[in-house]
Amino acid sequence: MTIPPALSLPTMPTAPAPTSTRFLAACGGAFLLLFLACLAVAEAPLESVMGLVQKIFYFHVPCAWLLMLSTFVCAGGSIAYLFRGSERGDRIALSAAELGVLFGMCVLVSGPLWAKAAWGVYWQWEARLTSSLLLWLMLVAYVLARRYGGPSARQLAAALALFAAVDIPLVYFSVRFFRSIHPQTTVVSTLGPGMRSAFWLSLLSFTVLWFVLMSLRLAVENAQARIVELEVLLDQAEEKKS
């Protein structure tokens, strides 16, 4: 028996894209770059005041930058989803939020370890620390709402992402009004030449890593959507046949 044209089955995707060799090469490249960054960090001269512990900085700052990037990508995807009904925007937002949780965790662990050595305490209620903690909490809430809120929590999560993105500058300024002991962003321009190249290399490799992880995570989301779609079509085809 032939299948009626209305139910002609779509072509089967061979496998989720990430297992392709091109993808594996990108993944390997990102980790190689990260490894090189580690070597460069090891080579970089010791900072005269803080010594070895200053080296946390080379990984801490890129992670913080990725936390910000993830939040803004998440908010952008949420806007596309809320106002244009873009499913793709929604998937991008979810993937970015997960990466934000991952890199936010790295920031929040590496920061206090440095602070213990430099300030003598693990935690200070200070502008940057507080705003990154809150940003991270909001992203965790986003992922929780997506995972446990059922299908209708998607709009809710998207609204949360938008509020999170506007909240960050607000928290930052509100806490900054008391005190700020966190090193300013201007320290980057005062780094010695050996330190500077290590810093930029690690920033670059973390950014590449972010894009690779993002496409990996996005491919999972896309494959999932495709599978659900195929299942519906197959169910219809089987019903028709029996």
Partner: peptide
């Protein structure tokens, strides 16, 4: 937004308090 969602009471606080901090 939570009107149509499961586990509303638990989620409302979790979502709202971080946003309300400033």
């Amino acid at each position: 937004a939570l009107l149509r969602s499961r586990s509303r009471e638990a989620l409302l606080g979790a979502l709202l308090f971080p946003i309300a901090i400033p």
